[in-house]
């Protein structure tokens, strides 16, 4: 816009400063325009098998929900006696408890400073209270229609899967909410079982599979990745087998879901990385990298 002679612009070099009147029009675009633009500074390179390995957390949780529902169905149909389930659950919990300490050589226990006596106490308190309240659980939702109960359970289990802590650092993650939703679903479903002993066993089983099992998994994954893969495969196949005994179509759909999550989704993630265009430049808001709380504490 400034009517400056063209020769002048060639002599003077454009500077990225505002305080000098430069012999260029205001809408002049220099070659250095956008030279400080950086792309994909914080982009991560993903390895296919590493992503597949990480996806096993999701697989595990889906299988847990599947196993839980299958067990409930067997109980509801009267094909599985509550004593059997309680006995197996207790035995596997004990094995898991021993494994939990064996895997890391008792380091985690030393760090948390929790005694075995405390563990035993909380287990006893929990079992007593659940047993005592199981008649109440049984009759709690009697006035609610069964369809509502099923719908509610489905939503709660979905919510459990959504809010579960898969290791992502996101605002939506809340392990407390996730666990509560799963327990609520188990209470809902347990109330439709024939007797109060069934209800008690069902809720206990829910605690084992939704609260204790993920803790053991986390430790397995951190300490012995190979055995973790084995456990995941075994768990997935047993969930599939259980589902197959109820519904073949359901089992096929579930298998497809598992395969797509563990194989297709990682593939897509890596393919989509090619289209990533994250722009950075001097206009970005600076991040405060230091810990400033030390000045206040």
């Amino acid at each position: 816009m400034c009517a400056q002679p063209v020769t002048n612009t060639k002599e003077a070099r454009w500077q990225k400063v505002l305080y000098e009147r430069q012999p260029f029009p205001d809408n002049y675009v220099d070659q250095r325009f956008l030279e400080e633009l950086r792309k994909n500074v914080y982009a991560r390179k993903y390895q296919y098998w590493a992503v597949v390995f990480e996806s096993s957390v999701v697989i595990q949780q889906l299988c847990s929900v599947c196993v839980f529902v299958v067990i409930w169905w067997y109980m509801d149909e009267g094909l599985l006696a509550p004593h059997w389930l309680f006995g197996t659950g207790l035995a596997s919990s004990l094995i898991g408890y021993v494994l939990f300490d064996l895997i890391d050589g008792g380091e985690g226990r030393k760090k948390s400073g929790r005694t075995r006596w405390a563990d035993l106490k909380s287990a006893l308190v929990f079992i007593t209270f659940t047993y005592g309240f199981s008649p109440v659980l049984k009759t709690l939702t009697e006035s609610v229609s069964t369809d509502t109960i099923y719908a509610m359970s489905v939503f709660m289990l979905l919510g459990h899967l959504i809010f579960f802590d898969y290791g992502a650092n996101a605002a939506i993650v809340s392990s407390t909410l996730s666990l509560n939703m799963a327990i609520f679903a188990s209470v809902c479903l347990a109330s439709r079982l024939p007797r109060s002993l069934h209800a008690f066993v069902m809720v206990t089983f829910a605690i084992q599979i939704f609260a204790l099992w993920p803790m053991l998994q986390k430790k397995l994954k951190a300490c012995t990745p190979h055995s973790y893969v084995g456990v995941t495969l075994l768990f997935a196949f047993s969930a599939l087998g259980g589902l197959l005994s109820i519904s073949a179509v359901g089992a096929i759909l579930f298998a497809l879901l598992l395969v797509s999550i563990s194989c297709l989704c990682p593939f897509y993630l890596i393919r989509l990385q090619l289209f990533k265009e994250n722009i950075h430049g001097p206009w970005d808001e600076a991040e405060i990298k230091e810990d400033l709380s030390r000045f206040l504490s």
Partner: peptide
């Protein structure tokens, strides 16, 4: 026409709104 208050602001606006930089002035 678009006016920006600094060259950095111009770069930012051109990128954000996918503009032709010729129609952006820095004042």
């Amino acid at each position: 026409h678009i006016i920006c208050v600094s060259y950095t602001s111009k770069e930012n606006t051109v990128l954000r709104a996918a503009l032709n930089p010729e129609i952006v002035s820095v004042i």
